[in-house]
Amino acid sequence: MGILAVTGLVVKGVLVILCFFSIVSLGIIFYKFRQVYRANSQSEKFLEFFWKVKRFDSINAQLDRFDDSPLAVLFSEGFNELKKLVEKGDEKAEPNVFSTELGGIDNIARALRRATTSQITRLEKYLTFLATTGATAPFIGLFGTVWGIMTAFKGIGETGSASLAVVAPGIAEALIATAVGLVAAIPAVMGYNHFQHKIKVLIAEMDSFSTEYLNIVQRTFTGKQG
């Protein structure tokens, strides 16, 4: 640790930047871990509940239990849209009927797509920072190392001695920057890849749920109409 005290101003600046990157990226990893874990577990519970209850109004009344599930949000958006269309149908004195010719299914599909997009945005929030850290932290560290070695060589030139006692400390100081850059980058890259995979799985689940939801709506309401 004493070696940090004798590093140059530029290397110190690089180390401060890398520490900031490391702290923020690790914070994001903790946050994302919790968010994605809860989204996964609550989605599983919601699907189980959804297929068990089968009544949309009962499901809608219990949605508070699945706060972090993106599927619950999709259901809520689709149900709201469906409710609007049904109320519109009531005004025409034809309860529980809406016409596919008027684009009722399309409306619900659009609502579901919009909800899916907003959920993807929510889940992918801050992941950019992890990607940036993973990509740039080693280079920032390398910059610090190059600068430190330049300073060390300058010192050697001024001293006129190239003994190991003169050369080694400067290079050791310089290499710290690369080490800290790698320490910041490695967890960030690992976290980014892990969360990307988890989010892809959630997106696939949302797509299949949307399709299933539209099928149910079309089967139920259009069937009545027919």
Partner: peptide, 16 residues
């Protein structure tokens, strides 16, 4: 309209 609220970024940063 239903919104999910993400909380816990501050505590994650503190942990980090």
């Amino acid at each position: 309209r239903r919104h999910t609220q993400d909380v816990g970024l501050g505590s994650s940063m503190a942990c980090s």
